[in-house]
Design a protein around this nucleic acid. Structure first.
Lengths: 256, 256
DNA sequence: GGCTACGTTCGTATAACTCGAACAAGAGTT
DNA sequence: AACTCTTGTTCGAGTTATACGAACGTAGCC
């Protein structure tokens, strides 16, 4: 197919392996020796790489240590801005947060994984580990399942084959058949639930944003504590609000 | 010195040159041939590169065209989160926008350039081309001049030598002596003005956020239309509000 | 149906990347 | 204060792996 089984550019891979290390080292910077050990490279190699990356602005040096640089903020936010959902859906996401008082996220899919584009907080929003730019698994979230339910079956299969169904809580769907059953329900009803499948004590509703062909390009979720998101509020009111928002977003997307 | 006059890693440079092209191509994706022409590379080289970058998640392919990928959003936002100002200053920035009704930006310096970390909009905020993640020249902005005024003189000289004083409007400071004079004033008074030096019709006030040694780590600016930001409101009230905010931020920074 | 433009593949020359050893510099320790 | 250990840095050389160009496959267009 169009899968390039070409040899990848090793140098580019090590560049991003370095960035990954620096990004993971939350807060404190890393030195040449430590980076070389972690990536099993010669010190001189790392030295040369970080020097280049520094001149590109993607890493920054404090004295003799390196941290991730802000040129990546430029690239990253431009990547987000180029996504149709970032401009069109944002007002609606904030509106939903205001109306419900809960945390609302706009999510998209890339290469079989979920990416949190941005979120909005309501008055009673919970603080979770979720953050904009974070990557996750589609089957672990309400919004992710909503996306999966509105993707061609072959792509879903390909995603499941490629990434598996890793668990995050005891309630995460780990069985392929169970997932496909749920996805069918979700496709019928138009929205998905997440009952402690990603974080213990957290419930959520998610609805997809689809293009003219009915294929999901993203999704929006409302999440909050399980003891508040329950009963009709969870199963009726929130889905209604959500579908109202996504429908409007889809309309705006069609004419832009 | 510590300036590596080593040969840079060319492969890493072309990787980021590709990303730069894709980031600049706002909206529409680029094909292999076009990228090869722009960067003066062989098609096969570009093909191999974008294939690698795709597997890393930093570029994404639509059919036969490539656009910038959301893995960079992850890196970029983590880079911002690692910056002390992003967590500490944000509430104050939003408060200022609320109080003044104008646009408020939090800015930092990296490698002699300014980077907009994030902004907050008040009720009457103007819409400019400014966006989070954008890079600019320190001498063109109120916040940038505030930073320059609180940097060691040798670093300022080094920055001016390295980047020059390019103009953006007829009012931009382009003379080195004039800049140094203004910086002295700004250092004395504690805040800087921008009178149509970056955008015609736009005024701004900027104040630095300094560390325990008095060196600027960033700055905050309030900007709005010239016919609204004038008189005592511009020269007295806004600076007072601004200094109140930055002082508080500096205190919070000392104890974190 | 042929022409053009594009993405893709492959083999090869050589450019440039990786390595290791040696050097310099600083901090911590006795 | 001398010594040691660790760190960043430089350099040269071997060889890997990168870039190229030509050829192929393919789709769209005239």
């Amino acid at each position: 197919m169009n899968e390039t089984q070409n040899r990848p550019v090793k140098t580019a891979e090590t560049s991003f392996a370095l960035l990954e290390q620096l990004a993971q080292a939350d807060g404190d910077a890393l030195g040449v020796t430590e980076l070389a050990q972690r990536l099993d490279l010669a010190k001189s190699t790392v030295h040369r790489h970080v020097g280049t990356l520094e001149s590109l602005g993607v890493v920054v040096r404090d004295d003799d240590e390196y941290r991730i640089g802000l040129r990546l903020l430029d690239y990253g936010l431009r990547a987000r801005d180029q996504h149709a959902l970032s401009t069109v859906a944002r007002p609606k996401v904030e509106e939903l947060a205001e109306e419900t008082g809960e945390k609302v996220w706009c999510i998209t899919e890339q290469q079989g994984r979920s990416v949190h584009l941005y979120g909005a907080s309501g008055k009673n929003s919970v603080q979770t580990s979720a953050r904009a730019g974070a990557w996750g698994y589609l089957h672990q979230h309400a919004a992710g399942k909503a996306i999966l339910a509105h993707l061609p079956a072959e792509r879903v299969q390909h995603i499941v084959d490629g990434h598996g169904l890793p668990a995050k809580t005891p309630h995460t769907i780990t069985d392929e058949n169970e997932l496909f059953e749920q996805l069918e329900q979700i496709a019928d009803r138009g929205y998905a639930f997440n009952r402690e499948e990603s974080i213990a004590g957290l419930h959520a509703v998610g609805a997809p944003i689809t293009d003219d062909d009915g294929v999901a390009t993203g999704a929006i979720s409302i999440s909050g504590p399980a003891n508040r998101l329950k009963g009709e509020w969870l199963t009726e009111t929130l889905p209604d609000l959500l579908l109202g928002a996504t429908n409007e977003i889809e309309l705006n997307l069609s004419f832009s």
